[in-house]
Design a protein around this nucleic acid. Sequence first.
DNA 1: CTGTTAGCGCATTCAG
DNA 2: CTGAATGCGCTAACAG
Lengths: 340, 340
Amino acid sequence: MNIKEVARMARVSTATVSRTINGSDKVTPETAERVNRAIATLNYYPNHNARALGSGRSRIYGLIISDITNPFFPDLVKGFEEVAVRHGMEVIVANTGYSSERMKLCVQRMLERKVDGVAIMTSEMDQHLLEEFNKRRIPLVFLDTASPGFGVSNINIDYAEGVRQAVQHLVSLQHQHIGFIAGPMELASARARKTAFLKAMQQCGLAINEKLIEQGNHMIEGGYAAMERLLTQADRITAVLASNDLTAIGAIRALQGRQVCIPQDFSVVGFDDIEISTYTYPALTTVRLSRIEIATHAFNALHTTIQRHDKQGGSYEILPQLVVRESTTTVTKSGGNEKI
Amino acid sequence: MNIKEVARMARVSTATVSRTINGSDKVTPETAERVNRAIATLNYYPNHNARALGSGRSRIYGLIISDITNPFFPDLVKGFEEVAVRHGMEVIVANTGYSSERMKLCVQRMLERKVDGVAIMTSEMDQHLLEEFNKRRIPLVFLDTASPGFGVSNINIDYAEGVRQAVQHLVSLQHQHIGFIAGPMELASARARKTAFLKAMQQCGLAINEKLIEQGNHMIEGGYAAMERLLTQADRITAVLASNDLTAIGAIRALQGRQVCIPQDFSVVGFDDIEISTYTYPALTTVRLSRIEIATHAFNALHTTIQRHDKQGGSYEILPQLVVRESTTTVTKSGGNEKI
DNA sequence: CTGTTAGCGCATTCAG
DNA sequence: CTGAATGCGCTAACAG
């Protein structure tokens, strides 16, 4: 079943079939109709490999993420796949595992498969690999790690605003001694969140004490350990903001392990709003970072760049949104760590 | 950069280049060496689209799952991708969203991209779509839903054994009135688990009371609601086995909401061993279903079928394994629901 | 063991 | 607006 048979049945040339498939305006409605009927009755669909070879466009987008096992990513992947498929595109997902060694492999895979564009939703990208895409004029879109340029777009995340909302929420609940559990400093996103926290505290006129800041690893156990340390060193702490939800969940466990009641004795705020945060006990107050929005923007960035032969990439904005659930409440008069 | 240039630089024909790339044994080590040097210095890598067109093999495997957002799947996807890439294969992941409507779309995508084989790790597959693959002689591997046949392999999961371990564990802890929260009966895997539970109870000589069985939806809220009902209707229940971990987590929340202490007052066992089960409070005793193993078997099934031009698919076995953590313990003398 | 020659299925000139 | 011809980059017979 190929284009030739369709052409034969519709009594046109293969070129005409190709044109109607690709929606060329230079085809009479009548002949297009004939072709479409032939396509339908023959149950024909084009061979993408041949198409790619002939046109140089594979109709595949690459999606590079850190690790699909990280609960932040499944939604993103799902959203991206959905839009892509709706537009007749295929997606190849590649995990870097946070290693730039493996990032190299990911890039290689993308190049080999001749993807039409790549969404790079992680930050292990070095200049050297970036060149490989530039050389081949493959559009790119980054997640908060680059400024738009020739063929590269960026999705900007307003971490400052998201963290500000979280801190302000705690402040409005009378918390004064707010701790922060940072993520791994190799991650750009973790650095951004920490910076945002420092800034927000300052804006709220709260003292920043280094004893209030600890380091996790964006995983549950890291949050657990960091919270333990915080409890030991920060006497008057009554609330904590975590760099991501997993960290917050670890912190909650540490607190519960010490019989601290949340939120009565201690408030916890996460960041990301992954699905399980709705179901933790108590349900986690957190800052939502919509992965659907990110996915949609990423796709649009790539797609419009290609459609409009737009050399210049675009800039997109993601606004985090505080979601108040059950893990935060007003600080009690007798509250504070000394009581614990 | 293409095969011709490599041929020119190595002073051989393109056929020879092709042969050395594909590891044909009919190439002198010396010429192969020359070709490889040329490849290296030119930084050449083959165009997969052309390769696919010429050979009829895309070197892509399809992986159809229900929903990447379901915590059961990320590990599976990651594992599959890893083996595949290690063997020079690419992967296209498609989500059915538990809908056979969308399954149709998934199949279409696989066909269009001319995948060399498909791992179907979900059960929304109807005979009609299966034919499409058979017609084209595309190897398939299923997860516990088919018997091996021409070009189709199956990964068998010994649910009976896994559930037996769980029930026996509870029995050894003196539990007599063990509840079960089933998954959605549309899912073959959920049906298998329920059947296995019934059988295990019988084997242990325990009475099966319909009041001890409730229905969830394999999601947290379903487990929550089902546990609530169980608590209302089953007087002497002291333990529950859930059809999957998410359900168990929901059950735990329901119990905690009623101030029931786990495991002192009530034991809970899950199924699957998803990552968060290690981190719930208390950590969940569950039955591990290794996704890495499943992924590896799925890949091997496809790969050996193709390599050996093996018409007959294989059969693989997965043995679930009980993992005892903190959510189960001996029933207390005064225990039982009446106390609650 | 190596080179020559045809396609693979489609998109895309260029004529008409 | 449509058709004929060419090539995309590679693999696969078939010779030699």
